[in-house]
Design a protein around this nucleic acid. Structure first.
Lengths: 213, 213
DNA sequence: AAACGTTTGATACACTTGTTTAATTCCCTC
DNA sequence: GAGGGAATTAAACAAGTGTATCAAACGTTT
């Protein structure tokens, strides 16, 4: 028990570092985030990063945890409702993870950021998070449009859905300047999800009809 | 004439710097691009950047030229065909500027990159390029969907269209890992444009119908 | 051909980055 | 309470950044 206390003290700064790292990384990306700012946020010494983890990159890798993201897919997969509604639910939950600051799952934001700014751990992120989630949506889309469309067209459909969602996160600096009084509260996110859902279902239907005239 | 020769010599390194800057900036972004690499590419001395331009930031600003992008809008605006086809044409031309390496208009790529990684000149880019082009698409969409839908919904439609297009550029590092043998030749760009066009027109139609049952 | 202003060049500066060092402090064990 | 290993600290390191300096080279003008 005494040992536990000791470990807990060390663990405490470790956890503070992880929490601060998640915050700073998600706000500034891997490159622009500095070890000093992370440590300032965590209120620990600069050397703590290289003591507890071995490098900035390893710290970044340690902050990655895509379980909530994959859990989202599994949860939806278990629903026995039709594929259309499952897609709508996914878009909503995905946007929540992507835009809502209240949600502690910064992982989704890492994924989005990684799209534009590749880091040394991009491979891991693609393999563990992006590829599965793309495959998940691809399966949903395939259920909706049937077997008539090609793999290339299926891929483009998936890209269309993700592109719409991710734009709200990527484009935030620009969107904020274009529409200064727009912020992503729960109501707005719901409206965005509803829009992307309707828009995409109609798009998918059109693509499917093209192949089955 | 003698004076011209002199100016041309100076102008020559200036132009070489601009060309190299366009290349390096578009490949690495503003932050990750280094003055040294630009100068190495241009085969000029490091001091040339601060001599001919006054800073790295000013050099970046000097590389910006959104005329081809805005010319695209003007060209399409002059067509007397229906709004739907004009939108399809815009999506195609926009994607060309966004994805085709042959096209020398790196400006569009700057715009896309700026979405994710804001630089000190973001304000200028938003004002001179992004805002006008968003407004242009907004006008097209308004023509297509009519006056029934709200400004917020109109905005989301515009975001849906841009989001789909920009994803192919933003997500390139990831897309390349997901589908290694996919590259953006003219044929592929045409296919992407066709997909996004059909997908979006169907989406717009759906959004418009929602409001006019 | 000489003098001038302009352009180039190598170098150094000031600063920030991630990382390392060595001394100190802390806390548990004996 | 003393000893000892683990954790924290301040300071420094090496590498990289954008920028500034100042002398050399260049081409044009007189």
């Amino acid at each position: 028990m005494i040992t536990e206390t000791k470990i807990n003290l060390s663990e405490q700064t470790r956890e503070r570092l992880l929490a601060a790292a998640r915050l700073v990384f998600s706000e500034n990306g891997f490159q622009n985030a500095t070890v000093r700012e992370i440590c300032r946020h965590a209120e620990v010494n600069i050397a703590a990063v290289n003591y507890h983890f071995s490098s900035k990159e390893a710290l970044f890798a340690a902050t990655l945890n895509f379980e909530p993201l994959l859990a989202l897919c599994n949860k939806i997969n278990q629903d026995s409702i039709c594929a259309q509604v499952r897609l709508l639910n996914f878009i909503h939950d995905f946007l929540i993870q992507l835009l809502d600051k209240k949600e502690c799952s910064v992982q989704c934001q890492f994924m989005a950021r990684e799209l534009a700014e590749p880091t040394p751990v991009l491979g891991k992120i693609v393999q563990e998070a992006i590829a599965p989630i793309h495959q998940f949506v691809a399966n949903l889309v395939r259920e909706i449009v049937g077997n008539k469309i090609s793999e290339a067209e299926l891929r483009r459909c998936v890209f269309s859905i993700f592109g719409q969602c991710v734009y709200y996160r990527h484009g935030q600096p620009v969107i904020q300047r274009l529409h200064p009084n727009l912020n992503y509260d729960h109501q707005e996110i719901k409206a965005i999800a509803k829009h992307i859902g309707e828009f995409s279902l109609a798009g998918l239907k059109q693509i499917a009809q093209n192949k089955c005239p």
